[in-house]
Simulated scan of single mutants.
Amino acid sequence: MIHGWYTRLATLVSLSIAIILCMLSPIYHNPYCVHDLRMIPFVLGIIYGGPYTGLALLAVLLVSRMMIYSWSMVAFVIYVMIYLLTIIGMKWFDFNRLSSRKKIIFSVILFTIHSIVAAFIAKAMTVFVIDESYLINFILLPSLGMLILTYICETLLKQIQIKQALVKIEKMEVLAQLAASISHEVKNPLTVIKGFLRLLRQENLPVGKKEQYLTIASSELNRAEDIINDYLTFAKPDPDQVENISISEQLNKLTEMVEPLSNQQSVLVQKDIEDANIVGNTRNFQQAFLNIIKNAIESMPKGGTLIILSKVQKGSVSITISDTGVGMTPLQRARLGEPYFSTKEKGTGLGLMVSYRIIEAMKGVITVDSRVGKGTSFQIVFPVECIKDPSSL
């Protein structure tokens, strides 16, 4: 059964058009009637759209029949009878609980019964001849068409159900990975804190040691808070407040922030930055690119070169962050951004996971090029946008 008013409306419109087209393209004429396939979309609409959709299609069928040909009491009785037989048959056999195979068999048998009942009604109410051509064009061919179309409908519905089930499984798998990752990562600093709190209970503990233990416990608490904040950012990357972000201003600021780390790692930083404005949250932008730049520096433990470029193109700005570090294999590159995956020995993968989520939320596109021993290059492309100042309007 089709759910959702928009889906029902689309079904009603498409099947109404199919009914009218079938009536405009008859498959056979004889002196008593015109044979076409209008009953197929009508019955399909009742079966898969429900009684209300079927009632609307009945009205479309009657109006179209009257406008194309003329009013006919025989046609009215036949259409109403087919509608009632279909509704009764579906309730009697509990159509929605049947398997796909039984639904196909049910629809073909029901359609055949419709054709036979329609023939007897026409014969009883008017001059009507049931000949060989009627059996072929009004019973055999439409029943075959009903078989094919019901099979197609059931196949499509099954594919939709499989897709929905896969999406649900993927969501549950991601949730399980995140839960395991949070548990693992938060447990480590909590274990450290618990250990130092036990040490603080020792009698005659020197003041210097107390200060040292409290400092370590505090830093571990901050680390746990950072981990939780990363997950919260991943869960809700769209900030409530967006603003114009100057690419050159933020990239220069980030370069200054990582300068102590780059000096410590003997990494030379080269910049070639063209300015452009994009729309987003400045804090999230800094967090996303700080993670990428820090990873690039940490991938060069023996020193190297970090290159930060930005280039304005038609309607977009491209930001490239390249290093001459250890590089990655194709398999590692494909897994970038996954929860709890990192190329670093003690890495959690949270940083890049959050960066990917933030950049995607800001309509950015990420591509990564990397070769083992040669280095890695991140290219992020954003649309150039600007929020207009309301006071200037």
Rank of each mutant, 00 (worst) to 15 (best):
S262I: 04
I273A: 02
L37I: 08
Q264C: 04
S25N: 14
E170Y: 13
D226V: 03
M1E: 09
E225W: 03
C153D: 02
P189S: 09
V258C: 11
G208N: 05
E259I: 03
K163R: 14
P383H: 04
T343L: 00
L141V: 11
P142A: 14
G303L: 14
K346H: 12
S72W: 05
V312F: 06
Y340P: 01
L55W: 07
Y28L: 10
T376L: 08
I273T: 10
I113D: 04
G4S: 11
N244C: 07
W92Y: 14
G337M: 06
K209G: 03
Y52T: 12
L221V: 07
A288W: 03
S25K: 06
C153Y: 00
I293G: 03
L84E: 10
I113F: 09
D272R: 11
T7A: 15
S16C: 09
P142M: 13
S262V: 03
L9M: 14
S391P: 00
W71V: 08
S133W: 10
D240S: 09
A56T: 12
Q159N: 15
I247C: 12
L178I: 13
S266V: 01
S107K: 00
A165Q: 15
D230R: 05
T150V: 04
V267M: 10
D230T: 00
L15S: 01
A118G: 10
I366H: 06
Y231M: 07
H3V: 12
L44E: 00
A334T: 13
A179M: 11
T191Y: 02
V43P: 01
I139N: 06
F106E: 04
L85Y: 01
S115T: 14
K91D: 12
S248Q: 10
I182M: 08
D389M: 03
E220C: 08
V108N: 02
I273E: 05
I169G: 06
P189K: 02
L149Q: 05
T282F: 00
N137G: 08
L199C: 09
I321A: 08
K314Q: 12
C22H: 11
H184S: 15
F120S: 04
L85P: 01
Y356D: 07
P142Y: 13
L44Y: 00
R223Y: 04
D226F: 04
E298K: 13
G303Y: 12
P142S: 15
Y213P: 03
I182L: 09
E173K: 13
R8C: 08
G280N: 02
Q177L: 14
P206F: 11
V317Y: 10
A122W: 08
A119N: 04
T324H: 01
I130D: 00
I182V: 12
K302P: 01
S318T: 08
A217K: 03
C386F: 13
E345F: 11
S99W: 11
S318I: 06
T11F: 13
I278D: 05
K253S: 14
I359L: 06
L110C: 01
G337H: 07
S377Q: 14
I307A: 13
L166W: 15
T329L: 01
A179C: 10
S25H: 09
P237Q: 06
T255P: 01
I88Y: 09
N222K: 10
